[in-house]
């Protein structure tokens, strides 16, 4: 209880400091997500259409996922230096695989009979894609976006290692100074943000899933 009171006191002590950290954290997350969507959704569409290169690209990307987020940040540092931009690039790269893989799997998962029927009724290729294939792939695509987002929220904490003051700063500071209250402020806020993203996107996923029997 003392710990909780101390943590609240720490936030109250300098609300501006806490607000800025939340803001930076959220901003970094949203930007990284935005860039990742812009790059990896179209890429996933392309990959899903190639019978031969597609699966190879997807497995290569999946293999890349074993590289830990922290390693990506540190690997980028000599190339890009410190600050918001390198952190953004690292997080965007991190969000890529789950989005790419799910876009590909979602689009490929639409039964051929359904697509042939769309053509048979007289849809053009683009009508068939936007009215049938994409909507049917949406649940899988949104699931990919959801796991990418949660991953970004968590990993944005690590941006404090490249001098971006996210909620991760409190964690690092708490650990290095042995101040558990500060550590709690960081850890609890990050968890709440991740849960919020999970809830919102989980809801979106249900919304785009056609009802079953």
């Amino acid at each position: 209880m003392d710990l909780l009171r101390d943590a609240v006191a720490y936030v109250r002590d300098d609300p501006e400091r806490f607000r800025r950290a939340v803001e930076t954290h959220a901003q970094l997350t949203l930007y990284a997500l935005g860039w990742a969507l812009l790059i990896f959704v179209p890429l996933g569409v392309l990959v899903s259409r190639s019978a031969r290169a597609g699966p190879a690209i997807v497995s290569a990307v999946a293999a890349l996922r074993v590289v830990p987020s922290l390693a990506i940040l540190f690997l980028m540092e000599p190339l890009l230096g410190l600050g918001f931009r390198p952190a953004l690039i690292a997080l965007t790269a991190l969000a890529g695989p789950p989005i790419l893989i799910n876009v590909d799997a979602g689009l490929r998962g639409v039964p051929g009979a359904v697509l042939e029927n769309a053509r048979g009724l007289g849809m053009t290729p683009s009508q068939s894609f936007f009215r049938v294939q994409l909507p049917l792939a949406l649940p899988a695509i949104v699931a990919g976006i959801r796991s990418a987002t949660v991953e970004i929220v968590a990993s944005a904490s690590l941006a404090s290692f490249v001098a971006v003051r996210t909620l991760g700063n409190f964690v690092v500071q708490g650990v290095t100074t042995g101040n558990e209250a500060v550590l709690l402020v960081g850890a609890a806020s990050i968890t709440l943000l991740a849960l919020l993203a999970e809830l919102l996107l989980g809801g979106a996923e249900r919304l785009v899933t056609p009802p079953q029997a």
């Binding site: 359904v114 042939e116 029927n117 048979g120």
Partner: peptide
């Protein structure tokens, strides 16, 4: 075609 033909969404 067979019953798979309706668009489920």
């Amino acid at each position: 075609i067979q019953q798979t033909g309706l668009f489920p969404h």
